[in-house]
Design a protein around this nucleic acid. Sequence first.
DNA 1: GACAGACTACGGCATTGCCGTATCTTTCTT
DNA 2: AAGAAAGATACGGCAATGCCGTAGTCTGTC
Lengths: 102, 102
Amino acid sequence: MAENFNRIMEGLGDVLEIVEGRAAPESYRVHIPEKVDVKAIRDRLKLTQAGFAERFGFSIGAVRDWEQDRRTPEKSARALLTIIDREPAAVERALGPITADT
Amino acid sequence: MAENFNRIMEGLGDVLEIVEGRAAPESYRVHIPEKVDVKAIRDRLKLTQAGFAERFGFSIGAVRDWEQDRRTPEKSARALLTIIDREPAAVERALGPITADT
DNA sequence: GACAGACTACGGCATTGCCGTATCTTTCTT
DNA sequence: AAGAAAGATACGGCAATGCCGTAGTCTGTC
């Protein structure tokens, strides 16, 4: 609920950019949140910090820094974390174990 | 073709780790390539560097550095790039424009 | 109480992110 | 063909993150 509200509010920022002419409406662009609640995502997956890191290829140090608000994950990392949160299956598919390709 | 071969060879590395007891077989883990051909991915999508950057939330500087072999994208970025390459639709869905959630 | 697992809290160096700018190269346009 | 504009390449350079190590805290278990 509250999360949806936040997403919409953030989305409004994009709309503003278009309205103000700072962005082209035809240019699709993903929206990457400024802040990501790593611990929440990890808890949902019921993994330890170490497990979470190994599972998705992060370094343990980075995960700790993120959860401790010592460092902010980079845009790419925030995007990946968001995808892990919303489309975990796709992450499996794209990066997952040695498949015979699709 | 050659790409599949590479994927399999890289996958063998993971298998080795399990065989040698350095990794637990039950712990699923994604495999993130050491090198990613950013230009190839971008060309496939027919986007300019600037377009590609805006489209997926990278900074232009990073994209340039990557394609010029000046910097190696971080693990998270390599993972994201790989997902963009293999599951672009999922990226759209997870990060894409303001949806009413799923 | 001793011990192990998970997490917090920092120190500190290597590496990347990212911005700016100058220099081609390619592709239109006149 | 000459000039303009777009797209890339090539660096300099600072700020910020990645990442490794270590010590301390908290909790549950034996």
